[in-house]
């Protein structure tokens, strides 16, 4: 009697379960399987226990890749979130400018990753690239292939160019949902532009910004295609991020066991950091109050 509706509804969810099982759970289990075994090919496996994990967590190479990855994500968030919010604030609220801005903002998001990498690879070249050529003619010595700083700068610039739009669009949607009355009230109260931002726009944008930070963190933490196309992880290992390192390990060296262990650790790190971000940002004293 207490049971709401009937249980046949669960059958509707079944296909999704099957799909998720095939696309996520089974591969993940395979990876877990690999991570605790050793193989020399021809389907011969040896039990390795936690060896690969111990080795990974003590490996200098992993520490460095993880450090680079964290550094990259931090820089990306520090630049893209404020920049995205600022651009969203500058966008027109009504009139013909709105669709124009929205289309312009959406453009970079529509370009495939590898094309973005290729564009910047050409763009930055000293001989034929607009950016590289111009900088070199202006007297800066710029070469992203040989110089570590230049490589980082280029990758960051590329990511900012590619993904800030996402933050802009999310922030803009958040801003649009604020009723006019709030701006009128602030105007009447003599609030400064900064106060309006801090007391009205930022609190009301909070929820979309949480989503923006999470998305940008997860995406940047998993970045692969663009730096692979642009620098291939170099010069040296200076732009070898976790994902690039993982591919080198798995497909370059064919060390399936260590690579599997790294995948699992990689996955757990993303999960943990996303959870930390989410908890910190949604820690709102009002939400415990109950009634709205």
């Amino acid at each position: 009697m207490d049971k709401p509706f009937n249980n046949r509804a669960w059958f509707l969810v079944l296909p999704v379960f099957a799909l998720v099982a095939f696309s996520a759970i089974l591969p993940l289990m395979t990876v877990v399987n690999y991570s605790v075994q050793d193989t020399f090919g021809s389907n011969v496996f040896f039990w390795a226990g936690t060896d690969w994990y111990v080795q990974l967590l003590n490996s200098e190479r992993f520490h460095q890749a993880l450090g680079r990855q964290l550094m990259f994500s931090a820089i990306v968030l520090i630049i893209q979130i404020p920049l995205g919010v600022v651009i969203a604030l500058c966008m027109p609220r009504k009139g013909w400018g709105v669709p124009v801005c929205l289309v312009l903002m959406a453009l970079p998001l529509l370009i495939p990753w590898n094309v973005v990498g290729t564009i910047w690879q050409v763009f930055g070249r000293g001989d034929i690239g607009l950016l590289g050529y111009t900088l070199n003619r202006m007297g800066f010595s710029y070469n992203y292939v040989n110089d570590v700083g230049d490589a980082w700068l280029t990758i960051i610039a590329m990511d900012v160019w590619h993904w800030t739009s996402l933050v802009v669009l999310l922030a803009y949607a958040g801003l649009r949902s604020i009723p006019e009355a709030y701006y009128h009230a602030a105007q009447i109260d003599g609030a400064s532009r900064w106060s309006v931002f801090r007391l009205i726009q930022l609190p009301k944008m909070k929820h979309v910004l949480i989503i923006a930070v999470l998305l940008r963190f997860m995406d940047s933490f998993m970045i692969y295609t663009e730096p692979f196309v642009l620098t291939g992880g170099g010069p040296g290992n200076s732009t070898t991020f976790l994902s690039i390192d993982l591919v080198k390990l798995a497909l370059g060296q064919f060390d399936l066991g260590p690579a599997a262990a790294m995948s699992i650790v990689y996955f757990l790190v993303i999960l943990l950091l996303s959870w930390v971000f989410y908890t910190v940002m949604t820690n709102d004293p009002d939400r415990q109050g109950g009634a709205a």
Binding site: M1, D2, K3, P4, F5, N6
Partner: peptide, 20 residues
């Protein structure tokens, strides 16, 4: 649109408590 935690809903004397 919601099902009660306890109690019954009847249409013309017919129990429709779980009917969506």
């Amino acid at each position: 649109l919601e099902a009660p935690t306890s109690g019954r809903v009847l249409f013309d004397g017919k129990d429709v408590t779980g009917v969506p």
